[in-house]
């Protein structure tokens, strides 16, 4: 008997294949056209690396990349740290849990556009100069909430007895935190860091409302080029590189985090 080729399995595999085509066809076409000689994206006329060469000479893009990376990095670090501290304080004072949740969850739920305009007006009122800092703040408010929720979910699953044992063995509060809590939270911290990084890196809405003249991130650049003009091969080259970077993160993330979700259970019905 060939289990894999029964009719029902055939349907399943074709369905999955179809979904994968749905997900990857646009990306594949985009990558393909990034190597296209012709500027027009109707036919593939020949292979070239010209667009990549232009890309690395494009100072505007490089600056935008630098801005995006620096904001995303700092935002991911700050929000994961603050989220960790908040989640850890709940562990020590569980009666605060509900109150803190009520405060921390709305930024995740509220539509981004509303949060963005409120920040824009706030910065206007306090007379802040729009730029790196304002964009950073906008990204981080959401990210803190995300980090908190992610880390809190996992901190719950650490038995309090682990801490007690560590303490009885002579570990002070800091040693317990460093040697027990942090290592056991690694999956949540990794998830939090990666997701907040990518959220910030690809954020458009809040950025567009809180940025100032002359301050551009990659999504802003993509927006301006893609919406005003048309799709350009240079943009395709940039997109291709960013997609490759994303895939690397994705593989790492899936290995580290996602497969754990389903790991514990025996599969195949």
């Amino acid at each position: 008997m060939c289990r894999r080729c029964s009719p029902s399995n055939l349907i399943w595999h074709s369905y999955i294949l179809a979904v994968l085509v749905f997900l990857y066809a646009p990306i594949a076409v985009l990558i393909l056209f990034s190597f296209n000689e012709s500027k027009y994206m109707t036919h593939f006329t020949g292979f070239t690396l010209e667009w990549y060469a232009r890309l690395v000479e494009n100072l505007r893009i490089l600056k935008a990349l630098e801005n995006s990376v620096s904001i995303a990095l700092v935002s991911a670090v700050v929000s994961t740290l603050l989220g960790l501290l908040a989640a850890y304080s709940i562990r020590k004072a569980p009666y605060l849990s509900l109150k803190l949740d009520t405060l921390m969850v709305p930024p995740i739920v509220i539509p981004e556009v509303a949060e963005a305009v409120s920040l824009m007006m706030f910065f206007y009122m306090v007379g802040a100069e729009y730029g790196w800092l304002t964009v950073f703040i906008g990204h981080t408010a959401f990210n803190i909430s995300y980090a908190y929720v992610t880390i809190k979910g996992q901190i719950h699953s650490i038995s309090p007895n682990l801490e007690k044992i560590a303490q009885s063995l002579g570990a002070g509060p800091f040693a317990v935190f460093r040697r027990i809590i942090i290592p056991l939270l690694t999956p949540a911290l990794t998830a939090s860091f990666l997701v907040t990084f990518i959220t910030s890196f690809s954020d458009f809405v809040k950025t567009v409302f809180t940025t100032g003249p002359g301050f551009e991130t990659l999504p802003l650049y993509v927006w301006r080029v893609a919406v005003r003009g048309r799709a350009t091969p240079e943009l395709n080259a940039l997109a291709t590189l960013m997609i490759l970077a994303s895939l690397v993160i994705s593989i790492y993330y899936t290995r580290k985090i996602i497969t754990r979700l389903g790991e514990s259970l025996p599969k195949q019905v």
Binding site: I198, P219, V222, W223, S246, L247, S250, T254
Partner: peptide, 8 residues
């Protein structure tokens, strides 16, 4: 994987 690719 697409989750990690820039929304825009």
């Amino acid at each position: 994987a697409p989750f990690w690719i820039d929304f825009l």
